[in-house]
Amino acid sequence: MNEPERYELFVLPEGVEKLSLEKDTKVPNAATFTIQCEDHTLGNLLRMNLLENDKVLFAGYKIPHPLENYLLLRIQTVPESTPSAALQQALSDLVQSVAVLEETFKEQMSGIKSREGTYL
């Protein structure tokens, strides 16, 4: 009855920004990103990657409410960098990693297929 529609988990409502940024007013070089329609899959992936970056002093994420489909990603960096730059770095690094994985996986699969015939 009051259950939210399931598709709201991954369909971005009209007029809502996928990503928004709010700068921290008290802490220098800190900001909170709001990412809509994403969950722990992306949140944890980004957080762990950000923590490997030397320029990042703090990185954490939370999903404030289980029925609201957005996550908050808070980043604080050293003065030489900005939270946006750190996030951009993390994103491009992860995209590259996954692309490499995709490529190697495809290569190995075609190797196996040609060796063992059509196993499918």
Partner: peptide, 12 residues
């Protein structure tokens, strides 16, 4: 996964 990441990246 790549698409999810690229979506946010494109937005940035």
């Amino acid at each position: 996964i790549k698409e999810k990441l690229s979506n946010v990246q494109a937005e940035m």
